[in-house]
Amino acid sequence: MRELPAYYGFWHYLGHYGLRVLVALVLAFLMLPILIIIPLSFNVEPYFSFTEGMLRLDPDAYSTRWYEQVFNDPRWILSIKNSFIVGIAAATLSTVLGTIAAVGLASPVMPFKRLITALLLSPMIVPVIIIAAGMFFFYTRFNLVGSHLGLILAHAALGIPFVIITVTATLTGFDRSLYHAAIGMGASPLKAFWDIVIPLIRPGVISGGLFAFVTSFDEVVVVLFLAGPAQRTIPRQMFSGLREQINPTILAVATMLILISIALLVTLELLRRRSERIRMGTSA
């Protein structure tokens, strides 16, 4: 612990310790609600609360029955499958389109830059309920409601802003003269793009893709409007479970989702560090 500065008076001390207490409380507020799910998912009873046995740490009060139920329920299996199919396809689509567009957008001579950026970021600003309702009206005409394709297109649109933001962030540290030098030396723009730009912005592209995947993986409003029974996803299944019959299988699924988030978070952190190293490298 650092020594507190000598000029500190009463208000300084109050601020100093008060801040620490407040910070601890806010951190608890952030983390506890998430952590509490994990032990509850092992409750042997079909409740959402701690039983006396659980508090006594009686092994009989814990069980993995809800996890077994998840993997024995064809509806959960189908939703897990759908979530991954839609998530991966949507993330791929928005990463490819978004990365190419971000490169164009980063060009200093891009026309209508401000307007186009605002448009590309707007799926993040417009309330999902409005997007979902509009898609329900419009996709109906193309028979896209109740199809995987419709869901993939919708989720890809929702993921675009995240790809644009992350890729643009890596591009700001990127020295465009490298790209122009390659073209000047006779490389085609496509080849220059592939050989020079992509390797440098790869961390940003991957984290943008992960963002897009998570956006789809966690999305439920559009699914509520566009998906038929054959397209239900994990969040959709959780939503109807929470609405209709509260049952701890949801807690088991939630615990698994928390583990997935931790894995994603670690991946992203590693990517961020790598990207920082690359950026330092090119600007040095």
């Binding site: 959402f48 998570v214 988030s261």
Partner: peptide, 20 residues
């Protein structure tokens, strides 16, 4: 990480925990 983990955790998971 304490801030980012909730950020990356599914919205439905967090809503579920508030119900619990």
């Amino acid at each position: 990480i304490f801030v980012l983990l909730p950020f990356w955790t599914s919205l439905l998971v967090r809503t579920t925990s508030w119900i619990a």
